[in-house]
């Protein structure tokens, strides 16, 4: 038997608006900004590896390369480095929660 939990917890999905929801809002002042965020930084995008273009193949149920026979998963073995991309940031170790 699995632990009883709220339905939101029982079937966790990435949050609405993507894994890391987009915001144009600027930070608030020190009194309302979480203390730890004073140490927030922009990740070093030079550490990220550019991902090759890919399409999802419905029949094979995997992504396939564009203009190459190499399958995307064979070309990238990089850890999930935040690359500064705000529209499609990579998933994180921490899972689906916010």
């Amino acid at each position: 038997m699995h632990p009883i939990s709220h339905p939101r917890e029982a079937f966790p999905l990435a949050p609405e608006g993507g894994r890391t929801p987009y915001s144009s809002e600027q930070s608030s002042d020190a009194n309302t900004r979480p203390w730890i965020l004073r140490y927030a930084m922009l990740p070093d995008s030079q550490q990220a590896v550019a991902l090759p273009p890919a399409l999802y193949d419905e029949d094979r149920q995997i992504s396939v390369g564009v203009d190459t026979d190499l399958l995307p998963y064979m070309q990238t073995h990089s850890p999930t480095i935040p690359d500064g991309n705000t529209t499609n940031p990579p998933p994180l170790d921490e899972g689906a929660k916010d």
Binding site: T20, Y22, S24, Q26, Y39, D98
Partner: peptide, 20 residues
């Protein structure tokens, strides 16, 4: 040390930021 209890990554001011 301090570290986030949950996800370290967020977007504000159109920029992706992280806390290590």
């Amino acid at each position: 040390i301090c570290k986030p209890v949950a996800s370290p990554v967020f977007i504000e001011g159109d920029q992706l930021k992280t806390v290590y």
